[in-house]
Nucleic acid binder design. Structure first.
Lengths: 139, 139
DNA sequence: ATATTATTAATAATAGTTATCATTAACATA
DNA sequence: TATGTTAATGATAACTATTATTAATAATAT
């Protein structure tokens, strides 16, 4: 996850990082773009994409692999899981005991060099289960 | 997963279904398109996409949600897991005892109406771990 | 201060997928 | 068997998400 290149701390990079950490949620690339643009109106979408990946490569944020497109990132680095709403696509945290135990089992039965897993849950969020919104900001 | 509409069994649909079932692997949309086109040279890509979703909605095949784009489907309907190679992106089966047990735990701690989960493993396939190919047919 | 090099904004390009629509084929019914 | 109804098709445009390109600029080292 780490990359040993030297990271220049540009304003854009710093603001992106701050916005992710403040978010609490797990903003998608374009949600983040909107948030960041409130502070840096001239920032480019490409810069957001570039920095999200860079920050993730350097372990400052985490990319959520369980969700589909558009991408989502998380400022929380500690292990935890996610639930995504099938209807409005929002993503929430899930505090759960680690399931790493079965990674050993997986490594035993697989001839892959198994490095990790992607695990996410889906269903209806509290709002949607009571027939509320259908925002679907993302696929 | 079921949809009660009447399904017309067109040649295209039948061939797509047959090719998935014969595949053994977990063909991506374009791999499947190539395979099907050997038997139906005039089939449209849109038809392949449409039918893959339709067949999945009717429970005749399964969409693999754990993998990214491009999509992959599976003719095997019984529960099992998948490993994807980080380098060449091939996807293999994994026979493993069900981990459904913790779905109860998830439902207990979450205020979502949790319907299921997506679980997949990643790492290097036997070929890639010995420094072999880097096909990367998919992201 | 200056040199070095990563980073930027803008934008074109690309991958994957979905929507549109006029035509056609599947199936039910007469 | 012919006919009507409706789902499905092929062609293609449109769209979403993402990556590549490039000349200009800003961050850090010297």
């Amino acid at each position: 996850m780490e990359k040993p290149e030297k990271l220049k701390m540009t304003v854009q990079r710093r603001v992106i990082l701050e916005e992710i950490r403040n978010a609490g949620t797990h903003p998608s690339t374009d949600e983040l773009y909107l948030a960041v643009r409130r502070r840096l109106p001239d920032i480019s979408m490409a810069t957001v994409y570039r920095n999200l990946e860079t920050l993730a490569e350097h372990g400052l944020i985490r990319r959520l692999w369980e969700v589909g497109a558009p991408r989502r990132y998380d400022g929380e680095l500690r292990d935890h899981y996610h639930v995504m709403c099938e209807q409005c696509n929002r993503v929430d945290d899930l505090s759960l005991e680690a399931v790493d135990g079965f990674l050993d089992e997986v490594r035993r039965v697989s001839d892959y060099d198994v490095q990790g897993y992607r695990l996410g849950f889906y269903g209806l969020c509290p709002d949607c289960r009571r027939g509320a919104p259908d925002r679907r900001p993302a696929a």
